[in-house]
């Protein structure tokens, strides 16, 4: 019992150190204004009652505004995880520091988790703080707060999507041999889920005989929601959609729960497994 407590204490200390190291870097100086402008700006803009939005976009409630803001979270905060994590392992490996750390009498699992939590929380903490600040902006514009459960869902889902990205980034970083391949793999995975996923969905739909020419039909909506469960961005949106009344893609809650559990544990476990096998 006390051994477990000691391990957790060590993990906490190392993660804190990792966050501190990541936080005071040029990368964070670039990322912070992006987060602030994207998340804060989006919530301010969408909650403006005078804003002219496309007809199919609804921003009538605070949570609908948060839902629309989530697109900007996906563009900025996940990119932040890429920025912080793309060379998280490869840099240490190439510099020889990883060899020194692996020689220390501490399990690689703890070192791996501290690395993961370090990358994740470096971006997640400011994102959560800015998201809470955005809720205040929404209140300023709409004179209403999202409900507590909606706020918790938004923060929870946002934190999770960043954890999934952190796992993926560190996993690809452990595969990368040099800075070039680290950038390529890091940005490549981000582009895959952020930009190319729609194309993959449409392609799969066409191959499987689902009409992809009309994205508003219910058959395609159900199909795309199933495919989205295989993408962190898609699953993040699906989680948030669960609280929206005017959007329903008829996906059972248990499927969403399983997908969330899988995304939370599978990439991180693969990363830790690989980290344990890594030759320094």
């Amino acid at each position: 019992m006390s051994n477990n407590f000691e391990t957790l204490k060590l993990l906490f200390k190392l993660s804190k150190m990792e966050i501190k190291n990541n936080f005071f870097t040029v990368r964070m100086m670039v990322l912070m204004p992006i987060l602030l402008l994207f998340i804060g700006g989006a919530s301010w803009g969408f909650s403006d009652q005078n804003a002219q939005l496309p007809a199919d976009v609804s921003a009538n409630t605070p949570f609908e505004v948060l839902f629309l803001t989530s697109v900007f979270v996906l563009f900025s905060a996940t990119l932040g995880v890429v920025l912080i994590g793309f060379d998280g392992i490869s840099r240490k490996k190439n510099s020889g520091l990883l060899a020194i750390e692996f020689c220390q009498p501490t399990s690689r699992t703890i070192l791996g988790f501290s690395q993961l939590f370090g990358v994740w929380l470096t971006v997640a903490l400011p994102t959560i703080i800015i998201s809470l600040f955005s809720i205040l902006l929404i209140y300023k514009q709409m004179s209403a707060f999202p409900s507590i459960s909606e706020t918790i869902l938004f923060i929870f889902a946002t934190s999770l999507v960043l954890l999934w990205y952190a796992s993926i980034q560190l996993l690809v970083s452990s595969i990368a041999k040099d800075v070039g391949s680290a950038v390529t793999l890091g940005v490549g995975t981000w582009l895959l889920f952020t930009m190319i996923w729609l194309l993959i969905t449409a392609l799969l739909a066409t191959i499987l005989g689902v009409d992809a020419t009309d994205t508003s039909n219910s058959q395609y909506a159900l199909f795309s929601s199933k495919v989205d469960m295989f993408s962190p961005n898609g699953l993040y949106q699906l989680l948030l959609e669960a609280k929206l009344e005017n959007i329903s893609r008829n996906l059972p809650m248990w499927q969403l729960t399983i997908a969330t559990i899988c995304w939370t544990f599978i990439p991180s476990s693969i990363f830790i497994w690989r980290f344990n096998k890594l030759a320094a």
Binding site: M17, F24, S95, G96, E101, Q104
Partner: peptide
């Protein structure tokens, strides 16, 4: 190890502090 590339804004104190913490 051979040729460890120490670079960045970190300091010797922080490097050793991390290893002390790991141990």
């Amino acid at each position: 190890p051979e040729n460890v590339h120490w670079y960045g804004s970190s300091t010797p104190f922080k490097v050793i502090e991390r290893l002390f913490t790991i141990r």
